[in-house]
């Protein structure tokens, strides 16, 4: 089969995507497919038109790759592709949209407020900050609505930290979110959805070695974060995390594969869903491949199943 591997692109996660893409290419070659690697740029449509692949493997993270843009383009061109469809990507890539959907459905997610820059510039939203701070309590996590990884995520510990944290978050997006900080354990449930329906993989817990926040650096640097898979959780927490992940998966309409990030509140023992990732990383240190491995699914098989799911989708 002729498989176009879409990678790179112009998002801030370009390097990560190139690493994911390279691994996917290797796996596809081993599986006997003909690989057409494409570093996504201005000539994408032209290249796809010329190459006419049977299917596109989307290994793009962040902007364009996860927000429905590439998916829309591929729909228009009539090329099948891996992972979630346009609407699911739009819902998941926008953390605010995803959290609203979760809250409406009664899925626990940390309290939050979200504003666009115009709310501050034109509507005086700054006046509302004290009320927000009062409700969320410090520390507050400030993050851009759409950025993947942990770029632009700041902790505000006092009211004086908030404006600076907002300015930083607005560097990445026109919409930002202030979210209650859940202190606890950082969990990720990866899901493969193919012919047999959605399958939650063993839970990965990320334990940073140095920093007390699981940041962009440790996320992609071998040896910087210790991953425990399956996470050492009691039975009920494990089951509950899996249930929540499947609920979110269905709610957002994710397809093929995806990852749901949760926090286990260390004081209350409650689980909260932070966000869902429609195109999770596939690098050596990424969580989905580790979870698959723990479930006895090797990288090649993982890639094969993701590809197969793309082909059966109507």
């Amino acid at each position: 089969m002729r498989v176009a591997v879409l990678k790179g692109g112009r998002s801030l996660e370009r390097q990560v995507s190139l690493r994911s893409g390279a691994r996917v290419q290797d796996a596809l070659e081993r599986l006997g497919h003909e690989v057409i690697p494409i570093d996504v740029g201005g000539d994408l449509v032209e290249l796809l038109t010329a190459e006419q692949p049977d299917v596109a493997f989307i290994a793009l993270h962040g902007r364009d790759g996860e927000d429905g843009t590439i998916q829309e383009l591929l729909e228009v061109m009539g090329i099948r592709y891996t992972g979630s469809g346009v609407s699911a990507c739009i819902r998941a890539a926008d953390k605010v949209l995803a959290k609203h959907a979760m809250r409406d459905r009664g899925i626990p997610t940390p309290d939050f407020y979200s504003f666009s820059d115009t709310a501050f510039k034109a509507l005086g939203a700054a006046q509302a900050l004290p009320a927000i701070e009062d409700r969320l309590r410090f520390p507050i996590v400030v993050k851009p609505a759409s950025q993947g990884s942990a770029l632009g995520i700041k902790f505000a510990r006092t009211p004086a930290d908030v404006p600076q944290a907002l300015v930083a978050a607005f560097s990445y997006d026109r919409k930002v979110m202030l979210e209650r900080h859940v202190a606890g354990r950082d969990l990720a449930v990866s899901i493969i959805s193919d012919g047999d329906g959605p399958l939650p993989l063993p839970i990965v817990e990320a334990v940073p070695r140095e920093e007390d926040f699981y940041d962009f650096e440790s996320r992609y640097e071998i040896g910087r974060t210790q991953f425990v898979c399956p996470a050492e959780l009691d039975e009920s927490a494990t089951a509950r995390a899996g249930e929540l992940a499947l609920e979110v998966n269905a709610l957002l309409g994710l397809a093929g594969f995806g990852r749901v990030d949760l926090m286990l509140d260390s004081s209350s023992g409650e689980l909260f869903v932070l966000e869902a990732d429609p195109v999770p990383g596939l690098t050596e240190t990424s969580l989905l491949p580790q979870a698959a491995d723990a479930a006895g699914i090797g990288f090649d098989e993982l890639i094969e199943r993701i590809l197969a799911a793309a082909l059966v989708r109507v």
């Binding site: 290797d26 071998i222 491949p289 580790q290 491995d293 723990a294």
Partner: peptide, 20 residues
């Protein structure tokens, strides 16, 4: 590129402390 999750920890154990 055939490294699996298990390899990550294996590599990590091999890295010199200065790489950290």
């Amino acid at each position: 590129s055939r490294s699996t999750a298990r390899d990550i920890e294996r590599y990590a154990a091999l890295f010199a402390s200065r790489t950290r």
